[in-house]
Design a protein around this nucleic acid. Structure first.
Lengths: 214, 214
DNA sequence: GTCTATAATGAGATAGAC
DNA sequence: GTCTATCTCATTATAGAC
């Protein structure tokens, strides 16, 4: 279990990391195999040895990126926690993980937008053991029951689970997807963006929960 | 002023329209000049005659797309209307225009994400006569005063104008940017998406205004 | 202004030595 | 497994006739 993996990771891993960097920055169509090779410090031919083709590498990058973003949200959304706790957990977790990988949302949206074939890949890929097609409906239904019960009790404003999820994810993810524009609009430096996200970490959950008050 | 522009528009216009279609679908890096030519029903060489290079065409498409989306929002945001009216107008206008051009947000985000040089272009381009750099700050300040006054009166929850704008735009735009994923998650057909947007047209402004209640 | 033909090059992919 | 060298083809761009 320990061979020499301190300094020298598996080459395939190193290539995938490099590809992650390059593909997220340039997009799949704009990425160059040569740039990935340079970033990984290996020869171009090696990329084909490990991933056969550019498309193969693109799929690997996409899968890894999607697995990093989606499963945690689905886990929280489907948990036994109360609505308020779910909102707080998702806001905190999303803003945290996206602060570390701010290019993730822009890449995923761009990728899905311009490469419809990724959707099938997304559907058939396995998250936490099962496919999203099987994972999603029960989560939505559970959420629906949870919301309806609270609405009947008069402690929540009526909303469909679909709109609930979209609104919550939109508020978390959009600033990162639109980051370059925001940095521009907020003034120079890019420092403004981090300040803005910090403010969001403190205020977004309360804003959202306020919107759900009856 | 009337030559023969009934059936035969200016060729340059026709090419730009075709490029709009192709570039929005494939992204700049993924778009092919041949595909644009086919879409426009002209020869490839003509694209270069009118726009000199692919980059020239890409800039023209981007500028036109940005001008279609941003100015109306800025106009409403900077108007004399009350906060509530602004929210309702922006929601209505955005959902309307994006329903007609659902690929716009995905394209703009992808483009800005993968081509940083577009930002300078965006900054230096002229909207309603002036550059965004001069247009934006006064709008934000006006909004800030408007919000602060209402907060003091106790009829609005405190929020910075930046977060206000981001939240509102996020809720309007995100579903379109994430459209392919939503269609997948909502079940087959794509019909589900339109239903979802119709529901949003009815409920989003109220949701947002509720979040702003003190 | 619009076309055909072609140049020029960039980039993905493979062969084969080490 | 990793490299060098090379093949092949797709794509942007231009030259030049009409």
């Amino acid at each position: 279990m320990a061979k020499r993996d301190e300094v020298e990771r598996e080459t395939g891993e190193a290539i995938l990391d490099a590809a992650h960097t390059v593909f997220l920055r340039r997009g799949t169509a704009g990425a160059r195999m040569q740039e990935v090779a340079d970033e990984a410090g290996v020869n171009k031919a090696l990329l084909h040895y490990y991933f056969r083709s550019k498309e193969g590498l693109a799929e690997a990058v996409f899968t890894r990126a999607a697995r990093r973003l989606f499963p945690p949200v689905l886990a929280i959304m489907g948990s036994e926690a109360a609505i308020e706790e779910k909102v707080e957990q998702i806001v905190e977790h999303e803003l945290e993980i996206l602060s570390e990988s701010p290019y993730l949302p822009g890449y995923l949206m761009s990728e899905i937008h311009h490469h419809p074939e990724r959707l099938e890949q997304l559907m058939s890929m396995t998250m936490s053991g099962v496919s999203p097609a099987h994972l999603l409906p029960p989560i939505v239904e559970k959420l629906r029951r949870q919301i309806d019960k609270r609405v009947e009790a008069g402690t929540l404003r009526p909303i469909s689970p679909e709109q609930f999820i979209i609104n919550l994810i939109a508020l978390c993810v959009f600033p990162f997807a639109a980051r370059p524009m925001l940095e521009l609009a907020l003034g120079q430096g890019g420092r403004g963006f981090e300040v803005l996200i910090e403010e969001r970490k403190r205020t977004l959950a309360a804003f959202f929960l306020n919107a759900m008050r009856p």
